[in-house]
Amino acid sequence: MFTKSLKGTTQAPELEMTPMIDIVFQLLAFFVMTFRITALEGDFSIQMPIQTQAQSELEDLDRPVVVTLRSGANRRLAGIKVDDQAEFVGPDMFQRLAGEIQQRAERQRDPASDSKLIVEFVIDYDLRYSETISAVTAVTGRKLPSGETQQLVDSIKFRDQGARLD
């Protein structure tokens, strides 16, 4: 839309920019003040069936791998047992746990079998939660060089109540 000036020439109308700039700067100030950089968060799914089937009723292949986490000094992880067999201790215990679970996953990767690899955790009551998450991470899978995650287990469970293990 154009207006005619007194001289008879056409001029573009002037837009009042001040209120728009005011509101735009207020919006900018709001977003800058509420902005917070946070690290990415992710989830591990844990299924806790309301009624669990008795261990004796399960087929051998469907029986979960029982991983026992024992707490030590300062509530740090002292040892990891897999199915009551040899206990992993020392700084590389998470790698050894991951290796053991990977071996079992490969053994179970028989296309004819529809069995699922389930890991059940028995955890010392006092164990620091960060140690539990490290163990859950070790059994869940591993990160491939491509950035993809190779899933090792189909399901992770926690045995109902945390016990104080000796």
Binding site: A39, L40, E41, G42, D43, F44, S45, I46, Q47, M48, P49, I50, L69, R75, I123, D124, Y125, D126, L127, R128, Y129, S130, E131, T132, I133, V136, F158, D160, Q161, G162
Partner: peptide, 29 residues
């Protein structure tokens, strides 16, 4: 991260009493 894992399991047990069984443990990348 410092919570005793037993307390996490107690909370899960409370949820289970209310028939809630679908859990996700949130962690930071």
């Amino acid at each position: 991260e410092d919570t005793p894992t037993g307390k996490v399991q107690e909370l899960m047990a409370e949820c289970e009493k209310a028939s809630l069984s679908n859990f996700a443990l949130r962690v930071k990348e």
